[in-house]
């Protein structure tokens, strides 16, 4: 009996890639959050705590928002997507050099590793946002103005982070020093991405500078999707799409160029 294993049927390239990504996804869940059920709660619980703290701090500092926007929800909804973007960009960048052992399986590409990891980050963030929205609905009756576009906004910022992660991850293979720049870079990005303030309240020259950053557009769009016309949003969906496309194409090309240069010998 020990010798006999079922022969596999050949599968299409797409089916094979989905299989690889889902295997990596399951592995990612296990390695990051352990085997216990508590681990899965922690997966949501840890960033939730952080987001609740940040929102509570802003709320307690008594900052007043125009048009009676709910303070707590406003900051929470600004912070959570940025958290996702940051962890996709910085963790993803590290994924290239930290998973070399997995590349011993020929079917696994660097792109598969990135996709599996970032799908998980995105799902975690979506759950957090859903919890915040649900909390808002139950406590103050705040119903999202345009839920579909809110989801689109989150997906776009995940894709932006995904492209950046691929680009930074492959740069790391060529220039080792990049690794040290990833973290500071994501910190600098925070104040200039408008997660906690509105572009409308800025002077025109600052406004113009901010709008070079695609994350600003996404944050503005998300706020409008959430709070509707109590906000004057400044965003251009086409501009964001160009960034998403550009970063992803560059990132994929980067991974392709980086793969043969990764040393597999120990």
């Amino acid at each position: 009996m020990i010798a006999d294993v079922p022969r596999r049927a050949p599968s299409s390239p797409l089916a094979a890639q989905i299989r690889v990504i889902s295997a990596l996804f399951m592995r990612e869940l296990l390695t990051r959050f352990g085997r216990s059920r508590v681990g899965y709660i922690w997966l949501i619980g840890e960033p939730l705590m952080l987001a609740l703290m940040i929102s509570a701090l802003h709320w307690a500092s008594g900052s007043h928002l125009p048009n009676d926007l709910p303070t707590f929800l406003f900051y929470g909804m600004g912070y959570v997507p940025f958290l996702m973007f940051r962890s996709i960009a910085s963790r993803g960048a590290a994924a290239v050099t930290s998973n070399i052992s997995l590349l011993f399986h020929r079917s696994i590409t660097l792109l598969d590793l990135m996709i599996a990891r970032n799908i998980m980050e995105t799902l975690v963030c979506m759950t957090l946002v859903a919890l915040f929205v649900l909390g808002g609905m139950l406590t103050i009756g705040e119903i999202p103005h345009h839920p579909g576009q809110l989801i689109l906004g989150l997906v776009l910022s995940a894709l932006l982070g995904h492209g950046l992660a691929m680009l930074l991850g492959s740069l790391q293979v060529f220039v080792e020093f990049t690794e040290r720049l990833v973290h500071p870079f994501t910190y600098i990005l925070m104040p200039i991405s408008a997660p906690f303030y509105m572009v409308e309240t800025m002077p025109p020259n600052v406004r113009e500078m901010l709008l070079w950053n695609p994350l600003v557009h996404i944050n503005e769009m998300n706020r409008w999707s959430m709070f509707g016309d109590r906000i004057v949003p400044h965003y251009d969906l086409g501009y964001v799409m160009i960034w998403v496309l550009g970063l992803n194409l560059l990132g994929m090309a980067g991974l392709r160029a980086a793969r043969p240069r990764l040393s597999m010998s120990d």
């Binding site: 299989r19 295997a23 592995r27 079917s107």
Partner: peptide, 14 residues
């Protein structure tokens, strides 16, 4: 056992 499941998923084995 987790590694066995990973290999099974990766290579499409039951």
């Amino acid at each position: 056992i987790a590694n066995a499941r990973f290999i099974a998923r990766l290579y499409g084995m039951p």
